[in-house]
Simulated assay, not measured.
Amino acid sequence: MAITSVGEDAHRVDALLDLGKAERLADGVARLSGAQAESMMWACTSGSFVFGPDGARQQVDQVALAAGVPASSTSIAFVDALQYLGIHRVAVAASYPADVAAHFVTFLSASGAVVVAMGSHDIVTAAEVGLLTPDEVVEMVRAADHPDAEAVLVPDTAMHTLGIIDRLESAAGKPVLTANAVTVWKGLQLIGPVPRLPGLGTLFRTAR
């Protein structure tokens, strides 16, 4: 995962466009030049989807070219995970303000996904998101879910979800795809078959 610098920690479109600009990504790749990585992920959902599908693809193409290894991003990983699981209708449980979350909905819609419900929580900084308790995350997923949704997406990498994905899926009664889980999954998929891993939900139980 690329280690990038951060300007302003803010879930605002202008700050996110600055966060995901080419210079920051290039610097992150340079910092990992000795890591001997076999794949690289731009592990930021909002810092990629605000650029739109074409811009997000340009980001990962630039990272791949600079790193010399396959690359992707969290936003693209969400799209790929939905296609992998054959899921079309989703609900979104977003920590972001509504205007930022709307960019994620647009990004998903461009890939063919249908967003049937979206919950936003007006949390401005990633630092604040990182303070959410497991119970608060579970409630966020429950509140955003919709009977017509085949899965619930949780798009913030600052949210601590890897340890509670099975709990989230039990609460929703359906697959829950979180930013950190799809990032790990895609990073592994870029270099070969993804192993089945317990505790990481439907996506890793159906690995093939």
Rank of each mutant, 00 (worst) to 15 (best):
P53T: 12
V114L: 12
G47K: 06
L19M: 09
R142Q: 11
L32G: 11
W42N: 05
G68S: 09
D166N: 14
V79L: 09
V154W: 00
H160R: 13
L17K: 11
P53N: 12
D80C: 12
L17Y: 03
A171T: 10
G7W: 08
R196P: 05
A35K: 01
T125R: 03
A149G: 01
W185P: 02
R196A: 10
V129L: 04
T4N: 11
V100M: 05
E139V: 10
L197T: 15
T106C: 07
R208T: 10
G7H: 10
A26C: 08
P53W: 07
A151I: 12
A35D: 08
L25W: 02
S48T: 01
I191K: 15
V141K: 01
G163T: 04
A35T: 08
V90R: 09
A144I: 00
L153A: 05
T161H: 04
P147I: 02
V69Y: 05
R24E: 12
E169I: 02
D148R: 13
E128S: 14
R31A: 15
R208K: 12
A207M: 00
Y84T: 14
L162Y: 10
V90F: 11
D27F: 10
A66Y: 05
L203G: 00
H88E: 14
G28I: 00
V60Q: 06
A126I: 00
P193Q: 15
A149H: 03
M159P: 06
A110S: 14
A35E: 08
E139M: 11
F107W: 13
D148H: 13
Q62M: 13
I191A: 15
L197E: 02
D145W: 00
Q189C: 14
Q59D: 03
H88Y: 08
L131A: 13
L131I: 05
V129E: 08
L188A: 11
G47S: 04
A113P: 00
A94N: 08
M1K: 08
A30E: 09
G28Y: 02
A15D: 07
A94P: 00
A26N: 11
T183D: 05
I123N: 03
A77L: 11
A181F: 10
S95M: 10
P193K: 15
L200C: 01
G119D: 06
V182R: 00
V114N: 12
P134R: 13
L65I: 09
